[in-house]
């Protein structure tokens, strides 16, 4: 899927600043609003909201900065999250439920259960995660609109 080009269906690009927990969730709210009124079911919108929120929080928690891009195709919604950050050395480990490197300041806010990436995977129809240590992380989630 990496080669797929969705650029013509780009609906929005949102910038995210690392460590800014005050504005956390704002991008996800924007994405949710963009999906409303387009004939997409509420339950699918909520799935995409979870995916976007977890991706947004991970960028805020672990990266310097990043972007989330929203694409709306006739039969699918695509969320892409890109960040400049430390990257993930062991993707399989990061995807294990319960694995977390979140520090105390993140845990105090109720994050750090090691569930975020699992949630994204669970709520996606197609899920892709790649990373380069020392450079950043790229995540793509596709949610199909028809069943």
């Amino acid at each position: 899927m990496s080669g797929d080009d969705f650029s013509e269906s780009l609906e929005g690009i949102y910038h995210i600043q690392g460590r800014d927990f005050v504005d956390a969730g704002i991008v996800s709210s924007e994405v949710k609003k963009s999906l409303q009124g387009k004939g997409i079911s509420e339950s699918i919108i909520r799935r995409i909201a979870v995916i976007t929120f977890e991706a947004e929080i991970n960028i805020i928690s672990y990266a310097e900065q990043g972007t989330i891009q929203l694409f709306i195709e006739p039969d699918a919604v695509i969320i892409e999250a890109n960040d400049a950050g430390p990257g993930i050395a062991d993707i399989d480990l990061a995807l294990q439920e319960g694995y977390s490197t979140a520090d105390d300041s993140i845990r105090e806010l109720g994050f750090g259960a090691g569930m975020g990436l699992c949630n994204i995977k669970k709520f996606s129809d197609i899920f892709e995660l790649t990373s380069l240590v020392g450079q950043g992380t790229y995540l793509r989630s596709i949610v199909k609109l028809n069943g």
């Binding site: 969730g25 996800s28 339950s43 806010l109 259960a113």
Partner: peptide, 26 residues
């Protein structure tokens, strides 16, 4: 745990929590 609530709550649920910071609103 916000990721737990994110994954497992349902629309229309009342959410009982000890968390107080603004991320609960999101």
């Amino acid at each position: 745990l916000l990721s737990d609530v994110m994954a497992n709550s349902s629309a229309g649920d009342i959410w009982v929590t000890r968390q107080v910071h603004q991320n609960i609103v999101a």
